[in-house]
Design a protein around this nucleic acid. Structure first.
Length: 161
DNA sequence: AGCGTGATTGTTGGA
DNA sequence: TCCAACAATCACGCT
């Protein structure tokens, strides 16, 4: 199953259909977020791999990065990250899929790079037995042309909503 | 002095 | 298949 790249986990389709509202918070996330930073800041018990690539930012985060700058410009007095999160989240939902399309496309790129990083990371893990140096790069062919960056496929489906 | 937290949604990974 | 945790940010507060 390809987990439907654009649709995401089946849970969304099922649950969201039943609960179109953003009740996804489940009330557990709050507590989780607390430990979230702890784990991230202090890393998990055995996750002491500084080379391990972090998860790619979702389209929302990509949009949020830009939104943060705009938000700060509009509200230089507001320094609360939560404010940006709320405003960003609200606007994000207000945006149409077409608007989110470019962000999703960028997020897709991040994900692609993430997979590549993970691949290299996995290779590294294998080589880390001897030495985590870069010598094993011979396996990794990084013939990635930074200049020859092809544009995203403009495959936006205009579904009227 | 230093790190945890708060808030957003999405995505990935593990069970 | 589904749940849970984590991705950035940034100033403030508590230990």
């Amino acid at each position: 199953m390809k987990t439907a790249k654009g649709k995401g986990p089946a849970r969304k389709d099922t649950k969201e259909a039943l609960k179109p509202v953003d009740d996804r918070k489940l009330g557990k996330r709050k507590a989780d977020q607390s430990s979230q930073r702890r784990a991230a800041g202090k890393q998990k018990k055995g996750q002491k791999d500084p080379n391990k690539p972090k998860r790619p930012p979702s389209a929302f985060f990509v949009f949020l990065e830009e939104f943060r700058q705009t938000f700060k410009k509009e509200n230089p007095n507001v320094k609360a990250v939560s404010a940006v999160g709320k405003a960003g989240g609200q606007k994000w939902k207000s945006m149409s899929q077409a608007e989110k399309a470019p962000y999703e496309a960028k997020a897709a790129k991040r994900k692609a790079e993430y997979e590549k990083l993970i691949n290299a990371y996995n290779k590294k893990q294998d080589n880390s037995a001897d030495d985590e140096s870069e010598k094993s790069n011979s396996e990794i062919h990084d013939d990635e042309e930074g200049g020859g960056e092809e544009e995203e496929e403009d495959d936006e489906e205009d579904d009227d909503l």
